[in-house]
C-alpha cells in the first residue's frame, strides 16, 4: 500500500493515473463522448490512485502497485446503502 496522506481537514482526492488528456480535436464536429475508452475483458484495467480507509488509518491505494496479485475491485452506490 502507498504512502500515508497528511491528516487534516482537506478531503483527499484521487483519480485515474497515466491517462493523457485527449488532445483537442481540430475537428470540432467530433462529439467528445467518443473519446471515452470502453473497458473490456482481456484488456488492461485503467490505473488509478484513490484515498482509502484501511484498518483505522487513512491511506492511499494505487491499482498498479498490486501487479503480481489478483485484485477484486468493487464499486457501490454509497456507504450505508443496505445491500
Amino acid at each position: 500500500m502507498a504512502e500515508k496522506p497528511k491528516a487534516g481537514c482537506a478531503r483527499p482526492t484521487g483519480g485515474p493515473v497515466g491517462q493523457k488528456k485527449p488532445a483537442q480535436a481540430d475537428d470540432k464536429t467530433q462529439p467528445q463522448e467518443e473519446v471515452k475508452k470502453m473497458i473490456q475483458v482481456g484488456k488492461p484495467a485503467p490505473d488509478f490512485s484513490a484515498p482509502a480507509y484501511h484498518k483505522g488509518d487513512f491511506t492511499s491505494v494505487q491499482l498498479s502497485k498490486f501487479l503480481g496479485k489478483w485484485v477484486v475491485l468493487c464499486f457501490y452506490p454509497g456507504d450505508f446503502t443496505f445491500v
Binding site: I39, V41, G42, K43, P44, A45, S64, V71, P77
Partner: peptide, 19 residues
Amino acid sequence: GVENRGRFIIDPDGVIQAY
C-alpha cells in the same frame, strides 16, 4: 452522481478478466 454495483476481477498482469 453515484457508482453502480460493479465488480472487476483483475489478474496479476493488470488485465481485467471479468466484470
